[in-house]
Design a protein around this nucleic acid. Sequence first.
DNA 1: AAGACCATTCGGCGATGCCGAACGCTAGTA
DNA 2: TACTAGCGTTCGGCATCGCCGAATGGTCTT
Lengths: 241, 241
Amino acid sequence: MIQSVDRALRVLAVLQGARRRSLGEIAAAMGLAPSTVHGIVRTLLAHGMVVQERDTGLYRLGPATLKLGNVYLDNLELRAHAQPWIADLAAQTGCGVRVAVPLGGDVVVVAAAPTPDEVGIVVPAHACALGKVLLAYGMCTVTDPRPMTGETQLPPRDLGTVRRTGLANEVEEAVLGECGAASPVATADEVCGAVGLVVPAGAWPPAPATLDALRRAARGISRELGASSWPPRFAEESATA
Amino acid sequence: MIQSVDRALRVLAVLQGARRRSLGEIAAAMGLAPSTVHGIVRTLLAHGMVVQERDTGLYRLGPATLKLGNVYLDNLELRAHAQPWIADLAAQTGCGVRVAVPLGGDVVVVAAAPTPDEVGIVVPAHACALGKVLLAYGMCTVTDPRPMTGETQLPPRDLGTVRRTGLANEVEEAVLGECGAASPVATADEVCGAVGLVVPAGAWPPAPATLDALRRAARGISRELGASSWPPRFAEESATA
DNA sequence: AAGACCATTCGGCGATGCCGAACGCTAGTA
DNA sequence: TACTAGCGTTCGGCATCGCCGAATGGTCTT
C-alpha cells in the first residue's frame, strides 16, 4: 500500500462527503498538514479528478471522475448482459429492477430498469436485499452496522438460507415503504453481483411467479457470464465442508 | 505534482483504454517496472478503484469509480439548474439537448434530454459545438488535434464570433449525419459549461427560433448560477483590450 | 518436458515527498 | 484605517518512503 496514493484516494473519499471543502477541512479530516494535502490535491487537479472554484478557492470533485465511472460501466460485461434481462423483468413484473456489485460495505447499482437514472446509487449492504446476497457470498463485509430505518435488522440473518434458495428479502430496512428481493449473479468462478426487485410495501410479498421470474433472470445472466450451476456454490463454504 | 499519485492516475487512464489489462501491459504503457506498478495497483485495489479478475489476474476499473462519478453529478449545481431547462428545450425543439463541462482537451456530458443515458460520454473539444464554445472561452485546450470525420475543421475557427454571438456550430465534424449548435453557460465569474443541441444533418440548419430558444436556455441557466451578463465576458480578452 | 508469461515478494539504494514555517491575499472588524 | 483571522500557496531540509532489479511460484502453451 503506497502511502501517497492511499492518501490521494482518501482525499477523494473526503470530497464525497460534501459539495465543497477547503484545503484545511480536508487536511483536518485526514489528520495531515495542509501543505501535505496541497501537493496531493494539486496532482488530482492536474488530472481533473478535482476542481477548484475560482472565487472561493474551495475544492470539489472534478469531471474526470464522471468519465472514469462511465468507462467502468461500458467495460462491464455484467451490465451488458443484464440489460435485456432486466428490461424484460421490469415489464413482466411491473417492479423496479436493479443490478448491483459489491464495494466494501456497500453495493453500487450498475444497471436499472425502467429507471436507468438509478445507476450509480450506493446503499449499505446490510440494509438491502441486493447487499444481503453479496454478504451471503462473502463479496461484501459489514463495515458500518448502523440501522437506516427502524426495521433494519442487525446483524443480517439467514444468509445460509440465501445461499440455499438463491433469494434474499428485505422489508423496509433501507427506505420506509420499500421492500426488495434479490438473487445472486455469478461468472464461472465467483459471484460478481446481484439482481433484485424493488417492491412497494403495499405490494409485499410478491407473487411466487414474480420471484420465479427474478430467479430465472439471475440464472440466465449467470449462464451468459459463464456460470455452470445456479444458485452458485460458495467457495469458502464448500472448502470447509 | 506528486510522482506516485500522478502515476496512479495514469494507471487509471491506461485502464480506460481497454476492458482489461495485465500488469505488464500497464507497466509497458507507462514505461515503468512491473513491480513499481504493482504497488500502485494494489493500493487502487484496496479502494475499489480497480478490480482484479480472480481467474485471469487481469485488472480493470472498479466500482468505486462509478460511485465517485455519481457523487460528482449530485454535487454539480450546473446539472441541477440545467435539468428543467433542457427538458423544456428538448420538448420545444424536438432535438437532443446536452450540457457539458470541460476536461482538458475533451468535453464531458453532465446532463442530457430526452436521453439521460448520454450522460458521461466524452467528445474531443475541437470536434463538437459544445467544445468550440469552451475553447472560445479558454476552458478547453486542443491537446490531440486529430480529425474525427472528413468534415472536422482544424484548427477550430471563428472562436471570436462564438464569443460575440454566444453560439457555436458544428456540421458533421464529430459524427457523420450529426450537427450541433451550442451556447456558453457561466457563473458569476467564469464560464463553467455549455448547453447544446444535437441536430440531424437533414434538419440543418435549424430555424432561427430554435437557436433563440437555445440562447434563452443558456442565459437562463447562467442567471440562476449567478451570472450578471450574457454572453459572458472572456476574462483574458477583456484584460488585453 | 521445456519455455513463456503471469502476478507477486523481497531488500537495498536513493530519489522523493513530507512537514513546519513563512508569505500574500481577502474579508470581516474595531 | 489598522488589525486580526482565515484562506491557499511556496519553500527548503531531513528522513522516510517508495522505486527498481532480481528471484519465486504459479499456469498455460508449445
